[in-house]
Nucleic acid binder design. Sequence first.
DNA 1: TCAAAAAATGAACACGTGTTCATAAATTTG
DNA 2: CAAATTTATGAACACGTGTTCATTTTTTGA
Lengths: 346, 346
Amino acid sequence: MKKTQNSRSVTAEDVAQLAGVSRAAVSRTFSNNGSVAPKTRVKIIQAASELGYQINFLAQGLNRKRSQLIGVIVARLSDPFRSSLLEALLSEIQRKGYQALVTEVQGADELEMTIRRFTQFRVSGVIVTSGQPPADLVKECVQHNIPVVGINRHMDIPNVDFVCSNNNMAALLVSKQFINSGCTSVGWLNYKGSTWSGINRGDTFRQVIINKNIFNESDFLEIITELDGYEGGRRAAHDYCKQIKKVDGIYCANAQLACGFLDGMRENGFDAPINFQIIGFDNTLQTSQYSYRLTTIHQDVSTTAQRVLTCLETRGQNPHIIQRFEEIPVKLIIRNTSPHTDNIRT
Amino acid sequence: MKKTQNSRSVTAEDVAQLAGVSRAAVSRTFSNNGSVAPKTRVKIIQAASELGYQINFLAQGLNRKRSQLIGVIVARLSDPFRSSLLEALLSEIQRKGYQALVTEVQGADELEMTIRRFTQFRVSGVIVTSGQPPADLVKECVQHNIPVVGINRHMDIPNVDFVCSNNNMAALLVSKQFINSGCTSVGWLNYKGSTWSGINRGDTFRQVIINKNIFNESDFLEIITELDGYEGGRRAAHDYCKQIKKVDGIYCANAQLACGFLDGMRENGFDAPINFQIIGFDNTLQTSQYSYRLTTIHQDVSTTAQRVLTCLETRGQNPHIIQRFEEIPVKLIIRNTSPHTDNIRT
DNA sequence: TCAAAAAATGAACACGTGTTCATAAATTTG
DNA sequence: CAAATTTATGAACACGTGTTCATTTTTTGA
């Protein structure tokens, strides 16, 4: 670990000089591209470790026209599910040898600037975990041959893949559970300005319920909240308690709403599963805790992350693949708010 | 937005050609460095927007020997406080015109590889939100003139600054609150393998309690959990209920432990503030919810993030500043588990 | 109007890597 | 052993920007 004079960082040229070879040989050794004799290779590696050489990724990326960065667009990390999704993505990105360029974005105009910065860094891919990717910006990515993947969303943008939890499967599991535990009417709870995935969960649920004639349309109630998150769910419960129409089982678009609704009901003297049943989405840590023990749909963030990176890599190699829409299986975690029953129908 | 042939990305050379000037003029225009005549500047900017030109950050960073990236080391994002800290850091990083290179790290060996990759990207700074920065790696950063800042931790590494919530202030606030609300004995709850900040919170608390002769040493109880997080707190409560020595007020190293302990006590038929009082740390969203309404110390992640970036920028300009240790004021949020009282002493 | 000062400009170099291509060395083949 | 083939090597170019420096143009001052 010798120190070069005037603290200039050590370059491939220095290594070549010490090893007594050309700089091209050094480059070939580290990029594993082209052939280099075994014994000169060890000479080079020795010299490199002696000098503490490490590749300059900026120069490498400039030359290759592609950095080993992957842009990740996130929003509202305060939602525990979103942060757990980010955690899974980071883990997978690093496992594959990339680095995550994470950007938080609030509005759609920021999103434009953000994606532009991604292209300026010549990222190997873009992951959109939230917000709708604007069509023209995506086009720009496609021009630069940068693959884009969206999570929990589906749009018809050519050359953009989507990975989404299987909302239809979730709806089936939930309706089955409600039936098995004796519900005769069901409700759907969601935020007014919900994301696509939230809306889709509601649509598939209604479809399963109505199409299969499981419940009459009159036995189905929609509760749409003005606020998002915990507080939105809580206030919705207060309003719900004042109104006449009640249902046995309530399915929620996400965990925050579910926890808030449950707490709101408790404030009014009602509790699950005694007075009603409730099933949430996301299976965040909080839902499993003693104060909630919420029956919930579990999203598999780990395999979601894996599929996302697979999509990025395959499209990186061949940009003209047909658009993919991958659905990730979900599980029903049965806890206290919609309990196990013994009379399970097929 | 004309498309160049064979999809090559548009470069400063193209802009220069269209504007009828030299490439140097284009560079000067966009880097705001050196002088360029007003009317040629507009010519250049027009040409640039017409072609859709955008600076290649890799080339720029290679030349400047410094990218506009800032490396952020995170861990355990499942903890809501950590994700809210990350959120604040991201927001501040972007506001200052940087981009966040986020890496999740589990063990100390990974941390070495991680920081090395940061230097390979010529980052403008490194933020360590968790884990102890290994001395030799930090030295490597210092060699490259890369400023390093640690959060909620204090070590005597030269040229590394630290930003930390004011644990002493927290201890004072907590002890005052316990006294005002009538506690005669107090306890401290923490995880066995706690981070530095957790240990420091306990040390300062004990110091305040004992040194000021507020309580006798015999009225002070330490509860050290085997497990971390919610489950650790919950099990600790179960054990605590079995033992003889009890205390009136319990101060917790973090929010997860506090929520778990509270729930564990409830499972055993005890609740706050009826049977005991409990004060947490972090003020995560969950602690404010109806099922907990936890009195808690609030960490100001926003000003923490601001200070961190100020440290990075100042040290970036002058690497030889003396080491700084900035303490961020905290607030006590009084809720249900250690309620307001009217007889407030001075 | 003319000299002196200031501002603007372009050529050229540097940043550190990957890759092509022609050549040299080593290996295989008949 | 000579010829043919494979492998290893270094010179040179490309990636796209910032910056220095000498030169040209414009502005200032009397």
